[in-house]
Design a protein around this nucleic acid. Structure first.
Length: 160
DNA sequence: GCCAACGTTGGC
DNA sequence: GCCAACGTTGGC
């Protein structure tokens, strides 16, 4: 089953916010990057594992797990909402440019996997887009191998 | 707040 | 189609 890493700024929307939503579910809106959009639109499916990453904060890292809970992607309503920060007047209503998926909270990690710690495992996580220089993708695939490694790392003792 | 990396835009 | 300018992301 495919796995993903999805970034969010915790000041805007954190894993705690997701947990607090009705049915612990929310639309993942506001993605405005074509590569991220393509993965959401073409590859994501219900049941996929999501590593929930906090970016742009004191301790960036993976904080929890979620799953994709919509059957597949569907049009992002915020692109048509002039009041929305994500409004995109150039998106054709009959051929929406941007999509969302529904994401449902699973659990917090027993301990955060910080970016700093992940970097210490760069060899095992070779190829993980998160660790590539200048990576700015907000939605990225995680291989089965890397997903298993990350879950093992969660179970391991934290670095001292 | 700084700045490097990168995606997008738009002139030509 | 090139590429410089610009805006954004995100770690630090």
């Amino acid at each position: 089953m495919a796995a993903w890493l999805m970034k969010s700024e915790p000041d805007v929307f954190s894993i705690d916010d997701l947990k607090a939503r009705p049915r612990k579910t929310d639309m993942w809106d506001g993605v405005r990057n074509y590569q991220a959009r393509n993965w959401m639109r073409d590859t994501m499916a219900r049941g996929n594992l999501v590593f929930f990453y906090h970016s742009n904060c004191a301790e960036p890292g993976i904080y929890g797990l979620a799953t994709i809970s919509s059957r597949r992607a569907y049009p992002d309503p915020t692109q048509f909402d002039p009041a929305s920060h994500y409004y995109d007047p150039t998106s054709p209503p009959d051929d929406p440019r941007w999509v969302v998926v529904d994401v449902t909270y699973s659990r917090h990690l027993r301990r955060p996997l910080t970016l700093a710690e992940l970097r210490e495992h760069a060899a095992a996580l070779d190829g993980l887009a998160l660790l590539r220089t200048g990576n700015r993708l907000s939605v990225m695939p995680v291989s089965d191998e890397h997903a298993a490694y990350l879950l093992d790392l969660e179970a391991a003792a934290p670095p001292s």
